[in-house]
Design a protein around this nucleic acid. Structure first.
Length: 905
RNA sequence: GGGCGCGUAGCUCAGCUGGUUAGAGCGCACGGUUCACAUCCGUGAGGUCGGGGGUUCGAGUCCCUCCGCGCCCACCA
């Protein structure tokens, strides 16, 4: 018993998350509980691949959300006995990382170009070693139970091999090709970017109207939003049906200021009603014009350098920046009398998702993936249900994107990334050698060209998403047939933000089907964006960014986690509010204090009093009944990925049923001593134990800590009480609670219903007391006409007295009894409670109150009478009808009570 | 142009397969320190679930339509 006291004395009044979190995480990790091997070799695996955060990243609320949700899934699966494996890792994030290192070099007064590629890569690796661990450390703080021994990085040797393998396979299948096409060019970053990396923003600009002089006199009016591209025009197009221009077709126009001759052509693409109805064609700088150019065999003129300054093709404008050129050219044309005017026009400006600079469509030699065949496989996988998307509505988005998939530009003119596994022999760029490595490339080259060849590797690297697309299987060892790959692939759930459905999810599904001939995961769970409490996007400029690290410092990890999960529904954005985090911090403390209560009462119980067959009070049955309902519901909700709702229900049960009611009446039952106390303690423990298990995936720290304390105390007290599932070393590896059907039986349900009525009575008495301004501490007299519930109320007298502050000595309970005149009457179904609030009951007031109550009851009674007399009774399911009938009967009885009482007044 | 989401109490949001008296947290009002917790307890006020129509015995929940807000995709020179 000394030991028990010690445990209690070591439990502070408020839950202290500070040292606890770190201590528990360390314990879990060192004990190997994050590893799937903690379960037997024949356990069914449950696998999640982490969406790899950027190595350079700092934890933000988006990470916090995904980490919480995935950890929740993993922890629950682990408790359900699955071999749970959460594969962690980071992404090299080509552009983002390169930019960071470039900035560092700039600060040192040098640059990428100056130090050279080799040195630059060395510096970047150095940077990665230094900061790469930051994000994973931060994930640990969130409680993420990843198997860190299996951590991967997209530029790891193994993953790089996977990338080369994937490239080679696609190349051999003819799905990867190189070509000169119009791509989105980022002049600042000096690289191509994919369509997905371009964002269009509406901006104010102008529509410039000008004259295209014709050879031999006259002109045709044309409109453009980007005058500088005039210099690259290779045609003017009109609609073939446009009568205004019929005669012009076939004539020759002269490019303003350059006087280059270009044809006037006809193409149905032209919208007759827009602008002047004539369209200038710049195949080198506009995607639509590029296509029109292809159709008509037009020349492609590139007028820009890679840094978006004008090149020699721009004649006198060479060397100017694109925007300066726009101004200068227009001014010159004005002077030459070639302009008509400009109108305000809203533009849709393509900007780089990274730097925000204006992206320029530019023709360049790039590598592409023809994604069509893979896209078809991806479409089929979702259509036939092999891959399920939660929420389902994203199927439509999936369908739409994959059916309209376009070639994916995978080459990037960066240095940080997977170098394209292609070599050129003796400077011949038209016959690339595709190989796993340089040695291989040499061997191939020698075979083809004999000795003495010089090789040059393609300078480009691959789009970051090319390697992330292989993530679920490359992290498990693919292309090697490793044991991990065999056991843990395909994975189970892929949880991520809906904003990277195309970038990442679609590409994983496509490459997995292509390379492993299997789906990468059976379920895609998409969460929304985390916004600020007013629903605005978090941004540094707005200054409304909530730093999860600070939140954890102030309120604890559990509070943040619970807020994120209970505040979100699949696919929808969520607003993160600190007041919620605060109230969830309070919840953690509440849990802690339930445990303190239980531990501090253990000395009232003795093992010797343990009954052979415990008898349960109505309250015991009520709470156990409710607990089973909770477990059942929570399970169903979690199985359907409705974690938020499940969490809210557990919270609600623990606070409003267990703490506010059962714990209160357990105080009475414990004081009765003997077997009653023992049974009560066992129920208290049982409910808490189950709740902690249910809650552990949500709030792992406070539940583990609490569970450990209670376990220690219970073992020290030696009461012969233990969990139905037995003790385990830690909650993290304990069993998920099972529903005990016996508590859902008809008998148990009836007992629970009786108790619900008692609860109602307590509430009514409290309200009546407040109404009459009775001193809070004052014990008052009460009379109860219990009818056929007599024995139940007699049994509950102590509890009733305690909860409603009644004077137990003066509590009169009978089947039927004469009410004194001056009382407040409370009708609860067929049961009445009379409160003789001495000197406080005004008869006329009481009459008025009762009349009002009767009116309300009658109104409801009539509503139900009507309902039950109508078609409802025949058409609605029997159970639903019965429920209403019971309600009606109850109201009838209640009305009777009130009427009777009114009659005597 | 196509697609999607949201609109529920003063604020921020739940409401799962339609079940008949719509919930929570915060805020507000009133009242409470005896030994789990003031990061607490009790009582209470507050909503015609954006408007209209429909399906149904029954609609916050399903369908149509309109209004307002937001997002995604896509060719607007």
């Amino acid at each position: 018993m000394k030991e028990l006291e010690l445990i209690m004395s070591e439990m502070p009044k408020t839950y202290e998350f500070k040292g606890t979190e770190e201590r528990l995480y360390k314990w879990w990790e060192e004990s190997g509980w994050f590893k799937p091997e903690v379960r037997p070799a024949d356990a069914k695996p449950y696998v999640i691949s982490i969406p790899p955060p950027n190595v350079t990243g700092q934890l933000h609320s988006g990470h916090a959300l995904f980490a919480t949700l995935e950890d929740l899934m993993i922890r629950r699966a682990r408790m359900q006995g699955r071999a749970a494996l959460w594969v962690p890792g980071t992404d090299h994030a080509g552009i983002a990382t390169q930019l960071q290192v470039e900035k560092m070099l700039r600060d040192e007064g040098t640059s990428r170009e100056e130090v050279g590629r080799e040195e630059f890569l060395r510096r970047t690796w150095e940077w990665k070693e230094k900061y790469g661990g930051r994000i994973t450390t931060q994930l640990r703080r969130l409680g993420a139970s990843c198997d860190w021994d299996r951590e991967r990085f997209t530029l790891d040797e193994g993953l790089s091999e996977a990338v080369a393998e994937a490239f080679i396979r696609l190349y051999r299948m003819g799905l990867i090709y190189q070509g000169e096409y119009l791509v989105n060019w980022s002049p600042g970053l000096q690289t191509a970017v994919s369509d997905l990396e371009v964002e269009y923003t509406p901006e104010n600009g102008f529509l410039y109207y000008f004259k295209y002089p014709l050879k031999g006199g006259g002109h045709i009016e044309v409109a453009t939003t980007r005058p500088e591209t005039i210099l690259g025009d290779t045609a003017v197009a009109v609609h073939p049906d446009d009568e205004r221009y019929t005669e012009m077709i076939g004539k020759t126009a002269l490019v303003p200021m350059l006087n280059r001759e270009i044809p006037i052509i006809a193409d149905t693409y032209v919208d007759m009603s827009f602008g002047s109805g004539a369209l200038k064609i710049t195949p080198g700088h506009d995607p639509n014009d590029f296509e029109i150019g292809q159709r008509h065999g037009l020349e492609i003129i590139n007028i820009m350098n890679k840094d978006a300054t004008m090149n020699a093709e721009a004649g006198p404008y060479a060397g100017l920046d694109r925007f300066e050129c726009r101004k200068k050219l227009w001014a010159d044309m004005e002077e030459a009398g070639l302009t008509v005017g400009k109108k305000d026009h809203e533009l849709s400006v393509p900007r780089s998702q990274r730097g925000g600079e204006v992206v320029e469509p530019l023709v360049s030699r790039q590598w592409f993936v023809d994604a069509k065949p893979m896209a078809d496989m991806g479409l089929a996988a979702v259509r036939n249900g092999r891959v399920k998307i939660v929420p389902e509505r994203f199927n439509k988005v999936w369908e739409n994107w994959l059916t309209n998939i376009r070639p994916w530009c995978i080459s990037r003119q960066l240095w940080w990334g997977h170098r394209i596994p292609v070599w050129y022999v003796n400077g011949d760029y038209d016959q690339p050698i595709v190989a796993r490595n340089e040695a291989d490339a040499y061997a191939q080259a020698r075979k083809l060209h004999g000795e003495g060849v010089t090789l040059e590797q393609d300078p480009d690297v691959l789009d970051t998403w090319f390697s992330s697309g292989l993530w679920p299987f490359s992290t498990l060892g693919w292309p090697e047939e490793t044991a991990d790959l065999q056991r843990y692939f395909p994975t189970d759930v892929l949880e991520t933000g809906h904003d990277i459905l195309f970038f990442w999810v679609a590409r994983m599904v496509m490459s997995s089907l292509m390379f492993t001939n299997d789906i990468p995961f059976h379920t895609v769970y998409l969460h929304g964006l985390v916004r600020d409490e007013k629903g605005r996007k978090m941004s540094k400029t707005l200054g409304n960014v909530t730093d999860p690290l600070e939140v954890m410092d102030e309120f604890g990890t559990d509070a943040l986690r619970f807020t994120l999960v209970t505040g979100s529904t699949p696919g929808n954005d969520m607003n993160l509010s600190l007041t919620k985090v605060e109230s969830n911090r309070n919840f953690a403390n509440k849990i802690w204090n339930m445990a303190r209560f239980i531990v501090s009462n253990m000395d009232k119980v003795s093992k010797d009093e343990k009954p052979d067959v415990p008898t349960y009070t109505a309250a015991d049955q009520w709470i156990l009944h409710r607990l089973q309902q909770l477990i059942k519901n929570a399970d169903r909700l979690c199985d359907n990925y409705l974690y938020g709702e499940a969490g809210r229900q557990i919270n609600d049960f623990m606070w409003n049923d267990f703490a506010d009611w059962y714990v209160e009446l357990a105080k009475v039952q414990l004081n009765e001593g003997g077997a009653r106390a023992w049974t009560t303690m066992s129920v208290l423990f049982r409910v808490l134990d189950s709740c902690l298990r249910l809650l552990h995936p949500y709030v792992p720290y406070v539940t583990e800590e609490t569970w450990g304390q209670v376990k220690g105390a219970l073992l020290a007290a030696d009461l012969g009480i233990e969990p139905a599932e037995g003790w385990s070393e830690a909650l993290i590896i304990a069993d998920w609670p099972q529903v005990e059907q016996s508590w859902l039986s008809a008998t148990a349900s009836r007992a629970a219903d009786d108790f619900e009525q008692l609860r109602e009575m307590v509430r009514s008495i409290r309200a009546a007391r407040a109404d009459a301004n009775v001193e809070p501490g004052k014990r008052i007299k009460a009379l109860i006409a219990a009818g056929d519930k007599l024995s139940f109320y007699e049994e509950q007298a102590g509890i009733l007295a305690s909860l409603a502050r009644l004077d137990e000595a003066e509590l009169e309970i009978a089947a039927d009894l004469e009410a004194p005149e001056k009382v407040v009457t409370l009708a609860l179904g067929a049961v009445s409670c009379y409160l003789p609030l001495a000197g406080m009951v005004d008869l006329s007031q009481e009459r008025a109150r009762l009349e009002k109550e009767l009116a309300e009851i009658e109104q409801e009674r009539e509503r139900l009478a009507k309902l039950l007399a109508g078609p409802f009774a025949e058409r609605a399911p029997a159970a639903v009808v019965q429920k209403e009938r019971d309600k009606f009967a109850n109201l009838e009885a209640q009305a009777e009570q009130v009427k009777e009482r009114l009659a005597t007044l």
